Amino acid sequence: MDKVMRLASDSGVVLFSKSSCCLCFTVKILFQDLGVTPTVHEIDQDPEGREMERALMRLGCNTPVPMIFIGGKLLGSTNEVMSLHLSGGLIPLLRPYQALY
């Protein structure tokens, strides 16, 4: 749990992902389209991935990936991100982390 929380707070936007997950890919593309480059942790390629997956589940998540943290705070998974985006609430959260064009 400590590693997950440390990694989640190391960068502004953090995505815990699995390399073969299509929903993870969708969230990555959304962030890219919004001008944000999240720090991505592919837990299926991390030697401590199983422990990280269990820690994410203990945070109350139904699925361990994709799991998004913004500003060190758990935002949620795909449903929460997409719902927030559709309601107009995601971009204000991401604004401090957007690349300048």
Results as ranks from 00 to 15, higher is better:
86 L>E: 15
73 K>W: 00
34 L>N: 05
17 S>G: 11
64 P>A: 15
35 G>P: 02
29 I>V: 13
1 M>Q: 13
66 P>T: 09
64 P>L: 01
84 L>K: 06
41 H>P: 03
51 E>A: 14
30 L>A: 08
44 D>Q: 08
19 S>Y: 05
59 L>C: 11
88 G>H: 04
47 P>M: 07
50 R>P: 03
95 R>A: 14
62 N>R: 12
50 R>A: 15
49 G>P: 01
101 Y>D: 12
42 E>H: 10
23 L>G: 04
88 G>L: 06
25 F>L: 08
60 G>C: 06
71 G>K: 02
17 S>D: 14
37 T>C: 10
30 L>I: 14
78 T>E: 15
42 E>F: 06
56 L>N: 00
64 P>R: 02
67 M>L: 13
65 V>L: 03
40 V>E: 10
46 D>A: 12
89 G>Y: 06
61 C>Y: 00
62 N>G: 15
34 L>A: 10
27 V>F: 01
12 G>N: 02
51 E>D: 12
49 G>V: 03
16 F>R: 00
82 M>K: 11
45 Q>D: 12
18 K>P: 02
101 Y>T: 02
64 P>C: 14
60 G>F: 01
18 K>D: 05
35 G>S: 06
43 I>D: 06
48 E>N: 15
86 L>T: 08
46 D>W: 06
57 M>T: 01
8 A>C: 09
34 L>K: 09
41 H>R: 07
25 F>I: 12
87 S>F: 07
73 K>N: 12
31 F>I: 08
86 L>G: 08
48 E>H: 14
37 T>Y: 04
45 Q>M: 14
50 R>D: 15
81 V>A: 13
18 K>F: 06
26 T>Y: 10
54 R>Q: 14
37 T>K: 15
8 A>K: 05
49 G>F: 04
1 M>G: 14
63 T>R: 01
17 S>K: 04
51 E>C: 05
96 P>M: 09
96 P>D: 10
81 V>Y: 04
14 V>M: 02
88 G>F: 03
61 C>T: 09
44 D>C: 08
94 L>I: 04
39 T>V: 06
90 L>H: 01
21 C>G: 10
29 I>L: 13
68 I>C: 04
8 A>M: 04
17 S>I: 00
87 S>G: 07
72 G>C: 07
43 I>M: 11
74 L>D: 02
33 D>I: 05
78 T>A: 13
54 R>W: 05
24 C>D: 13
90 L>T: 02
94 L>D: 00
5 M>D: 13
11 S>H: 15
40 V>R: 03
77 S>D: 11
84 L>P: 01
81 V>L: 09
28 K>P: 02
